[in-house]
Design a protein around this nucleic acid. Structure first.
Lengths: 138, 138
DNA sequence: TATTGTTATACTCTATAACTATA
DNA sequence: TATAGTTATAGAGTATAACAATA
């Protein structure tokens, strides 16, 4: 029992937003002297919640060797640290430095500012949108 | 008069979808032996609607020199063609070849298939979502 | 003079394959 | 043997600067 009367239409709109986003992130990243991929990594490491490198590769859906390079560059800029894992000595977990934590906050602040079109929706419409998007993410 | 009671929350949900999408596109592109950037270009050139290279650079929000390389690779695979513009001899417009047109259709078919979570919304909810997203894109 | 697209260059992103250390 | 991360390598994406052809 498929139910895609308007599902295709909604998905196409979301795709248009995704592609538009592809154009928005690079200049925003450049302002902070980061690449889009580095923004993604910084976004995924929450302060005080170290992330194993392998888990990062899974979330980014990329090869582990790729994470090595990304982490090298972020570490050489003093934004993150590799720490040995206590449980398994093969594993290295990633942690934000104080500088990295500040830059991440700045990044989220810029990124999470909703566009004007979103603020033009009424309170009620915004709540509806939140409810529907939440079910999309589940 | 700002109205961001739930706007920030909605935007954060959209960002989560964007980042999730960053993980979905590469494998889908790889199936067709394309890169994500090449998918974006193919998506932007509609059959029978030639696009000037400069306009493509604007839409992708990237440097013109970058478009040269992207187009080189797509052209060498026989997917698109450079054509001289009749109006301005400096301009080259991009056009799909028959092969490119077929591959684009295949790409859209794969990309535009809505995820299951979207099809689980009711008809009425889908319509509401379409209405709200449309206003977001305006 | 200004604009369109190209070339040369350098750096980042990405995957594959071979490797080291640990499990 | 299997897994986590690294290294070497190669190709693609990206920006900057200098350039040719055209406007």
């Amino acid at each position: 029992m498929k139910n895609d009367g308007h599902a295709c239409e909604a998905w196409q709109l979301l795709l248009r937003l995704f592609f538009a986003q592809r154009a928005i992130l690079p200049p925003l990243a450049a302002e902070l002297e980061l690449s889009p991929a580095q923004c993604h990594v910084l976004h995924l490491i929450e302060p005080g919640r170290p992330v194993p490198m392998g888990q990062l590769a899974d979330t980014l859906a990329c090869d582990a060797s790729n994470v090595t390079g990304l982490v090298d560059r972020l570490e050489s800029r003093g934004l993150i640290r590799r720490q040995p894992s206590s449980a398994d000595r093969r594993v290295k977990v990633l942690d934000l430095t104080p500088t990295g934590s500040r830059l991440r906050a700045l990044l989220l602040d810029r990124m999470e500012k909703p566009p004007d079109t979103l603020r033009r929706l009424s309170e009620r419409e915004q709540r509806t949108l939140v409810r529907l998007l939440t079910r999309l993410i589940e």
